Computed example of a mutant assay.
Amino acid sequence: MIEVVFGGAVGPEDAVLIEGDAPAPAAAAVARFVVPDHPLHGVGCACCAPRGPASEALARLFLARARGEVAWFARVVVLAGDDGVALVLAALAGDAVTRARFRGVAISSD
């Protein structure tokens, strides 16, 4: 499983999941997601959005790695605000495919 960490230093062999359009640090791969302005339901609600933006972004990273389109990585560093972190945590907890590929590790205080 690929580790997912929240915040902290990004190494050159890490992948990065970024909320919005913030500049990307040097990394093996970068994927972005956007927190919806007005979600109809709570973060991670499966009734009308079975795969949220964080799940989709993590899937893009995983597939790029599997296809050899990016350098191999064993860790994803999430750079996001509180709402973005909540989306990623919801994806890790509530999306079966995301949960099978990734595991949440820690929220850094950096």
Rank of each mutant, 00 (worst) to 15 (best):
I2R: 03
E3Q: 14
E3V: 10
V4P: 05
V4Q: 02
V5T: 08
V5S: 07
F6I: 11
G7L: 06
V10N: 01
P12G: 09
P12R: 13
P12W: 06
A15M: 06
V16L: 01
L17C: 02
I18H: 00
I18L: 05
E19K: 05
G20P: 00
A22I: 01
A22Q: 05
P23R: 12
A26V: 07
A26Y: 03
A27K: 00
A27V: 01
A28K: 04
A28F: 01
A29M: 09
A31V: 06
A31D: 05
R32N: 06
R32L: 06
F33Y: 10
F33P: 02
P36V: 09
P36T: 09
D37T: 12
H38W: 14
H38D: 12
L40H: 12
L40F: 09
L40I: 12
L40W: 10
L40A: 15
H41W: 13
V43M: 12
G44M: 08
C45F: 03
C45S: 00
C47L: 13
C47D: 13
C47T: 13
C48P: 04
C48G: 05
A49N: 13
P50G: 03
R51S: 07
R51H: 09
A54D: 08
S55R: 00
S55F: 01
A57Q: 02
L58F: 01
A59N: 06
A59K: 06
F62D: 08
L63A: 12
A64R: 11
A64K: 09
A64P: 02
A66F: 04
R67D: 13
G68Q: 11
G68H: 11
G68C: 10
A71H: 10
A71R: 15
F73A: 02
F73C: 04
R75H: 09
G81C: 08
G81E: 12
D82M: 10
D82V: 12
D83V: 10
D83L: 14
G84W: 01
V85P: 08
A86L: 14
A86E: 14
A86C: 12
V88Q: 01
L89Y: 10
A91P: 02
A91E: 12
L92V: 09
G94E: 12
A96Q: 10
A96I: 09
A96R: 11
A96N: 10
R99V: 06
R99G: 04
R99S: 07
A100H: 11
A100K: 06
A100P: 02
R101K: 13
V105L: 14
V105C: 12
A106T: 14
A106V: 15
